[in-house]
Design a protein around this nucleic acid. Structure first.
Lengths: 205, 205
DNA sequence: GATTATAAACATTCAAGGATGTATGTAAAA
DNA sequence: TTTTACATACATCCTTGAATGTTTATAATC
């Protein structure tokens, strides 16, 4: 079987990304060989080298596949006009993020790979920078929302929007790392929505 | 040169741990070969296999070398009798943790390796669990302190000690990951003490 | 509408270079 | 003398990148 149609080729590509996710998740990025990924996808290394330059590019593709929709989804809530109080928007956005993380195995796997199954050196050093960018823009976004809340008077006056944003920023990052990194099977997931709610409650008037 | 004295042998062991730290930090754990580590320490792989069973054991030793003193140090502050208010003890302990992290390159390197240069699969899967244990006990410890604060009346009554502890837990973890993982060179380090202070201020009466 | 040239979409093979674990050698400390 | 604390050598096994082979979808041509 050679020379597939465009749709079939696209299927192969998707299959490789899926396989990469599974293999990366099981063996870690460095120990995952292109051969194993290819075999998992039911093809050979030739297919990998056709669709991607190398392992790093395959990794990027796998990541982008999940990251972009995730950001779009949470941003939609964060900037939704449905919430009169910006604090509600922040709470909804963060809650949704962790809901997807728990409900969608694909998303969770990719985040688990990024957090505890990839060594950010050499070709992958840039991944860390790129992964850090969404984190930085997230900070900027919630800072904006906190400022809005301050103007509307729903943020407690003893807290500056900048401080509130940084605190929530660290809180969210920690929650992500704790829930995926080390605290599996401790029932943390079930507590996350409550933790978020009470975190936000701390800064409401 | 063969058959060193016990002290010299111990020096070799220390040297191997130091070399491992440097090489792990530069190339990531998986891509670090025992040969490279040995050469960096000025010995051969024979020495590595004499002192350690394999790479994993060397990794454990490197980690323990830094972790244990770190925990001891922060616990000393957390449980110090010098602070009348348990919230002050928590603040001092966490602040000290990040101070050491910034001041001590060795400690920072080990944490950086643990956070972004190691793939937690196979032989290293257990490392993640072990690394998660200090995190869990930290939660238990600050929960105890928050409870004490509640009894003393220095914790705001609208927050339960459990909630306060979990929030601080996530905050601390996030701070650690943000400062080491992705937000280098953004001046975050300089803001950390202030962030901790204001985080704690949020829950003081 | 049939033919044909082109290039897409892989499979296979090759060359080269490590890495690990173990086995063995060895000189000095104890 | 016996261990210790390594160094050296060996066997095995992988992995990657590139080169080359193969078949067929597809577009251009007639």
């Amino acid at each position: 079987m050679v020379r597939k149609t465009k749709e079939e080729a696209e299927q192969t590509r998707k299959g490789l990304i899926e396989a990469a996710r599974a293999v990366f998740h099981e063996h870690g990025v460095v120990r995952s060989t292109l051969d194993k990924i290819a075999r998992t996808a039911g093809v050979t290394r030739g297919a990998v080298y056709w669709h991607f330059q190398n392992k790093a590019e395959l990794f990027f593709a796998m990541r982008e596949d999940v990251f972009a929709p995730m950001i779009e989804r949470t941003d939609a809530l964060l900037f939704s006009a449905d919430y009169a109080d910006p604090l509600d928007a922040i709470e909804a956005s963060v809650t949704e993020f962790f809901r997807v993380l728990e409900d969608c195995a694909v998303v969770r796997e990719v985040f688990e790979i990024m957090i505890s199954r990839c060594e950010y050196v050499d070709e992958f050093a840039s991944v860390q920078e790129e992964a850090g960018r969404p984190a930085l823009t997230f900070l900027a976004k919630i800072e904006r929302m906190y400022r809005l809340a301050a103007e509307k008077g729903t943020l407690r006056s003893c807290i500056s929007p900048e401080d509130a944003a940084r605190d929530t920023w660290a809180f969210t990052s920690g929650l992500l790392h704790l829930s995926l990194g080390c605290q599996r099977e401790t029932g943390l997931e079930a507590q996350i929505p409550g933790m978020i709610r009470r975190h936000m409650a701390l800064r409401r008037v």
